[in-house]
Each structure stands twice: as structure tokens, then as C-alpha cells.
Design a protein around this nucleic acid. Sequence first.
DNA 1: ATAGAGTCTGTAAGCGCTTACATTTGTAGC
DNA 2: GCTACAAATGTAAGCGCTTACAGACTCTAT
Lengths: 337, 337
Amino acid sequence: MALTIYDISKKAGVSIATVSRVLNGSDSVKASTREKVLSVIEKYDYTPNAYARGMGLHSLRTVGLLCADSSDLYLAKAVYYLEQELHANGYESLLCCTGYELEDRQSYIKLILSKKVDSLILVGSHYVSNVEKENNYIRDAAKQVPVMLLNASYNCPNVYCTLCNDYASTFEATSSLIRAGIDDILYLYDSNSYSGTKKLSGYKAAMKSYKLAAYAPYVNFYDGRTDQIESITNFIQEIADRGITFHGVVASDDQLAVGAIKYAQKNGLRIPEDLSIIGYNNSMLTACCQPELTSVDNRLEALTHQLVQTLLRVLSGEEMPAESVFSGKLIKRSTTP
Amino acid sequence: MALTIYDISKKAGVSIATVSRVLNGSDSVKASTREKVLSVIEKYDYTPNAYARGMGLHSLRTVGLLCADSSDLYLAKAVYYLEQELHANGYESLLCCTGYELEDRQSYIKLILSKKVDSLILVGSHYVSNVEKENNYIRDAAKQVPVMLLNASYNCPNVYCTLCNDYASTFEATSSLIRAGIDDILYLYDSNSYSGTKKLSGYKAAMKSYKLAAYAPYVNFYDGRTDQIESITNFIQEIADRGITFHGVVASDDQLAVGAIKYAQKNGLRIPEDLSIIGYNNSMLTACCQPELTSVDNRLEALTHQLVQTLLRVLSGEEMPAESVFSGKLIKRSTTP
DNA sequence: ATAGAGTCTGTAAGCGCTTACATTTGTAGC
DNA sequence: GCTACAAATGTAAGCGCTTACAGACTCTAT
């Protein structure tokens, strides 16, 4: 059986309260006593039982990190930054990969709340649906702990949002192609999430402001199949085969954009002369393809940093703004003129 | 304040013991009583406090998942599979991104063990060093809980390893190029970890068995800088500029291989005629480049599945083999003849 | 010497649950 | 209707910790 605080107190010749105080860094312990206790703890390599501790402390400095799929390039990066930032501030992360189904995410949240996390971070805009009723689970969770949203916005007490202005970024990306003289621009997207919708509107608004016709087919490839890129390429091919012409592609995601690059290569189209392409997220994929991909950087590192800082302040009782919005920026590379 | 078992017992008109029995699925509760209790639980949306529970049960069904960098393509996928499989079996994952430094990983482990996880999973071969002393932390941790290694092998009581035969895979990959008539093959690697060393030996052995000279420069690019691919390309360029010739590249990682592809493209070399390239991990990058990358699939899904199954059995007291070794396979695409 | 004000430490009452054991209730056989 | 036994439920003692409160000690100012 592992050692308990009683064993340590006995060996150190003090009461358990004193040991507990040393453990919790209380300053009302005489230096010599502290030394003595610490040396015993050290000697026997004692680690306090976290269950018991959690009961007394009402906080184990743990937050639940929910993301749909931690193997997604973008989400993985977000999870990484968040975990690092949380750890640096003394918090640990309970990771949950909830998938994209509403029901799964609900059962996950229930479970995670039973572990008495201090907060819930929902990573990715998938967590906010356009169907209001489907967001009830957020509302419910927020009754118990502060809920932090990364890349999505939802107006509800005790919910804090940190996001990029995806509408503006996509508007700008689209406009940049139009200004370069391209007027038939396809918008590829694969998600009806909060930010997915914002991006789509940004594209549409840009086209409309130049009085151009919008065409935005929805690509339904959520699962992480290895042939995903090929599927995207085929999808675009079908569109072209239907006689729809386009000289520009704006995508809601770098992966979709890579699919477009491969489509162009398959058809002997020159990039960017015959087809200009813009991705989103500025991921490592931008450097893997040839030519290298122009993409929108949505400031993930800044977002995650801000999110954690907001969380820490909320947990310490400060009044904080419910929404922090950053601006993305277009990183020009070789797939655009 | 959240509801406790007392509130529920009161509302249901039974004792807390009965509620507890219902919660734990004891069969010594009358059906009608069970119904009554369950309906109250349902009505008030009660979730038991996991810490209090953990004290009684001596397990919170949580395992610590340590990986160096969850944003790494390969590790992220591993984390994803592991989390899914664990969750499906009623376990949750405490994620820790420890970075690549020994000290950080030690402090992380200490912390995570205090949270009384049921096991520790070390994701990635970085965790096993060739310097025996540096592996002491594994030994220590294994005294407290079973330690599972993914992609590495370490002989120690209470440590269980699930891995792919990287030596054989790299031997085979290298040999396949040699058999295709290429005799100046460069091996690119970026890690001196357990599996890194195995792969390197596989390459060397293959070259030696055909009496060819090996040349394996070490690429030191751990950090996730976005210009990583470019750095790799430059690195290879320098080698070529030094007058070293090579018509084949075997890499310990897809990303390194992509760097090689870009090097070829920059220098107008045809792939695979002038330069053949083989990657490792069979990641999504294989589909992002042009031509598509031949790569070694190291059976990640099978590995993670096996690892969790082994863990579950170990936790339930079964005697299990200390090592499970899978065979990788070469997935032929367009960067090889 | 002694009250008063610190400073340090100990005592004991929880925290919300599980579970051994005690008690009550139900059932069958007479 | 009573006994004997099984089934169902309740009582209460932990689990290992935190922390309010009380008590003991030290030091200063009188």
C-alpha cells in the first residue's frame, strides 16, 4: 500500500495538518519544521493521493480538453499549444476526442464533468452548431464550470470565446483573387460549423461586392481516410467535368486546397496562371506541396494563449470579456499571382 | 453546489448505500427500487463525484498519455487512436506533451502519478534512450503502475512494449531500392531514439549486405518551425553541393522525405528516374506531394489496439508478454521505380 | 512577572463515496 | 401463525486529505 500523510507525519514527528501545510505551501510553518517534513517526503518518495486531495481542495487543477479528432492537423496543433500553456500555469489536461457526433460529445462531457474538472475547453468550431437546440449541451455545461470556446462564438453566461475573424479573412482572401483579375472563383468547404458558416459568408460577400456569381460546393469528407486528398481531387474533377469553369479556388482548409493543387496537376493546369488557389490555417501542408500554398494564418498560437489567459483570470474570479476576436492574415506563397 | 449521493437518497426515499449500489450495478437491489433511484438520478441529472468515488474504488479509470509533441503528425495519430480505444473501454486519458527533454518528462511523470492514474503510456520511441541511465525514470514509474511503450522496447518488470520491427522495415525499404539498381542511397534521420537507432541499423545492414557504402547524415530539426521542410531541403542541398552523389533517399520520416522531393524539384531532378525516395509512417503527407510518396506503413492502428488490449489485461491481473512486435509494410507509390 | 499579540502546531470535523456488517422485510414450509 | 432462511436495505466506519478552530509556545512591552 502506498504511504499516506499519516505515515509521513509519524516519521517526521509532526501532525498531519503540518504535513498538509507543507504540501500546500502554506507560509505558517516554521522553516525548520518544513525542512524536516520535506526531507521525510523526499526520503520515502511520497506522493499525496490525488483523489483525497481533490475532495478537500475542490480543484485538481485539471481542465477537460475536448476536440473532435486530435489527429487533425489543425486541432492537434491547438491541443498542443493549449496543453503547453495550461501546464505552464499548473493545470493538466484531460483529453477527449469526441468525434463529430452530438451524442458522443454529450456523453463525454457528462463523464468529464464527473471528474470535477475546473473548466471545459471546446477546441474547434464544430462544437457550435447553427441549430440552436444542439447547443444546449454547452449551456448546461456552463452552469457547472466556465466553458471556453476556441474558434467559435456562442452567447451564453459563463461561456468565453476566443476566435479569429474568419468572415473578414475569407472576404479578404477572395477579394485578393478578384483584384488579381480572376472572376470565376470556387469556394470549397467541408464544415457547417460556426466558423465554416462565417467563412462561407465571407466568400459570398466578397463575390457579391464585385457582382460576381458565387459557387460553393460542400465537400463531405470528415473521416481521416488516407485517400481523402484523392477524394477531394475527384470531387473537383467532377465539378469541372460538369462544365463549370473556374480560375480560382478558395478553400476553408489547407487539405482541400492541396486537393485542388493535385487536380490542377492532373489536368496539366499551370498554377497560378490557369488556377489560383488559397488555403486556410497556414499549416505545414503549405510547404509540402509544389508550388507552395498561399494560405490564411488564423493566429492559432495567439488564440490559444489568449484563451488560457482568459480562463485563468475567470477561475480566479475576475470579470472577463465574453469574446476575444483576432484578425487573421493572408500569407502569400506561390499558388496565387 | 452539485448534488451528492445524500440528496439523491433523500429524494428517492432510500439510503445512500442503496443509491451507491445502483450506481455500481450491484444485483442485490430490488428492481422497483432500482427504477425509482434511477429515475431520480435522471431527473436531477446527478453525476457522482469521481474523486470521492476514486477513494473508495482505488481507480479512476484514467491513464496518463505522454507524448513529446501532440502536434507531430505521427504522434497525434497515435494519441488519437489510443484515446479512442481507451475511452471505448471505459478509461480516460490525461494528456501530457512533455517535449523532448529528459527533465521535463520526469517532472511530468511525477505529477501524473500523483493523480493516481492506472497506467502510463509513453507514446513514441523518444522515451527510450540509448543511454541506460536515462531510462531510470521508466524503471521508477513501473514500480508504481504498469508502463506501456508504443514503438519502443525496454526490458524491465512491469513495462510492456508494442512496436513495429523498424529494423526489418528499413532493411526491406533500402533493399528494394538496391534491387532496383540504385547503389548510392542516402539515409536521412532525425532521431537517436530507440526506433531511430533500429531503423538506422536496418539501412546500414542492407547496404552492407550488398557491399555498398552507407551514408546517413543526421538531421537535427526537432522544433515545429513552419520552415522545417525548407530547412531539410537546404540540408540536402548542402550535401549535394559537397559533391556527394546519391540516386536514392530513404528517410526515417515522411516529412524528411518530402524535403527530399522538394530538393529534387528545385534541382530539376526527375522522380524516380534521377532520384528515388522512400518515407516512413505512411502519413497523409504521402498524398500531398507530387509524385506521391512511397512509404513504410508501421501499422499504427494495429499497434495502438494491441497496446490497449494488453494494458486492459495487465490491469485485470493477467500475465502478459512484455513485448508485441508487428511487421511494417512498404506501400509503393510514385517516388520509387 | 504578566498580559497581549504573534507565531506555530495540533485536533477534529468534514469532503462524497464504498462496503462490511447489522437490521429489516419477504417468503416458504410447516 | 410461526420459524428459518434469503433477499433487500440501512448503519456506520473508513478512504486520505484540507482547514477552521483551538491550544501551546514565544516574544515584547509593561
